[in-house]
Structure formats: structure tokens, C-alpha cells
Design a protein around this nucleic acid. Structure first.
Length: 164
DNA sequence: GCCAACGTTGGC
DNA sequence: GCCAACGTTGGC
């Protein structure tokens, strides 16, 4: 695999991590479709990150959670401004929320675009074992946020771990 | 399947 | 506004 040099990107950008259960939506699913709305977020903190802070071009770690080997499995980028999560409006949808409506949407989302699948996933276990990642939000006890910012120093450390 | 940790709800 | 009860997340 050719290592992606994310330091070559220009302009101000932020780094993120987004979790998904691979049974529901995996890095392979994203690779197939290319771009996908990140729907179903029903947590205010996570929504606020998408609504207020994400910018097109921001880079994102794709993290597989609640599975056999949790960890970072790929890279993607933010591909849209935030817009209403329409799955909240449909009573047939799993993440229907009667409080949200098109006139006054409660829940927002962004589109994400596939960038790269890692040849070897970076497991949660290996993240925990890297002392340079002490203090990373993902690794903090009790953290359940499914969308969170990643500090540049942590991003760079993890990108270095993708060297095979 | 278990359970710790957290966010949300709703009675008061 | 407090806080107990409940539901969910997510590692193990």
C-alpha cells in the first residue's frame, strides 16, 4: 500500500474519528459506494461536531466498534456541509425521531467520502499500547462518543503506525 | 452475555 | 433544578 501523506494537504483542516459497527456499515461498504450520508447520529455532542465544526475536506478515521477486533480501518473525508438527517423524519426508519421535522430538524449529518482502506487495521489494543496516544479522547475511560475530534499530534502518530 | 459508564427522561 | 430510573454504547 502506498502510504497516504496527509501532511501534504494545504489549508486549515481538522481531524476526526467516526465510529461505525461494521455489521451495520463497514469500510468496505463505504469503499463500494464512495460517498455516503453519515446518518443515525442521535447524540447532541456528536451532532454539534458535524453541524458546527466539520468542514469539507477534513480528514476522518473510520473506526469499527462493537466487533471482534475494534480499531481504525480506514480514512475518509468530509464531503458536504451538514444538512438535516432525513432518516429522522421517516417512521419506518430505525432512527426515526418524532421531535425532528423538516421545518425544524433536530438531527444533522454530513456526507463522508472514501479515501483509503488500511492494509492492516490499527487495533484499539495497539492504540492503547502507544504511549504517544496517552490522553487521546478515544482512549479515555467511559468515552462513548461516536464522533470526536482528533488532535493533530495524535493523528500524525497514528498515521506513522500505518507504516508497514 | 456481562456490566461499567454515560446520556436522557421525567417526576417532584 | 435535582436526581433516580432507564436505555444505550461498546469493550471484554
Amino acid at each position: 500500500m502506498v502510504k497516504l501523506d496527509t501532511t501534504q494537504r494545504t489549508g486549515f483542516m481538522q481531524y476526526w474519528l467516526m465510529k461505525s459497527e461494521p455489521d451495520a456499515f463497514s469500510i468496505d461498504d463505504l469503499q463500494k459506494v464512495g460517498t455516503e450520508p453519515w446518518d443515525g447520529i442521535r447524540n447532541y455532542q456528536a451532532r454539534n461536531f458535524m453541524r458546527d465544526d466539520m468542514k469539507i475536506g477534513d480528514l476522518v478515521f473510520f473506526y469499527h466498534s462493537s466487533c471482534k477486533i475494534p480499531g481504525i480501518v480506514g480514512l475518509m473525508e468530509v464531503a458536504s456541509e451538514s444538512y438535516p438527517d432525513f432518516t429522522a423524519f421517516d417512521s419506518n426508519e430505525k432512527y426515526f425521531d418524532s421531535r425532528s421535522n423538516p421545518e425544524k430538524p433536530t438531527w444533522m449529518m454530513v456526507d463522508v467520502k472514501f479515501v483509503q482502506k488500511l492494509a492492516v487495521p490499527i487495533t484499539l489494543q495497539s492504540l492503547k499500547q502507544n504511549p504517544k496516544l496517552d490522553g487521546m479522547r478515544l482512549l479515555q475511560k467511559g468515552n462513548r462518543l461516536s464522533i470526536m475530534p482528533v488532535e493533530k499530534v495524535h493523528w500524525d502518530t497514528i498515521m506513522d503506525m500505518t507504516n508497514v
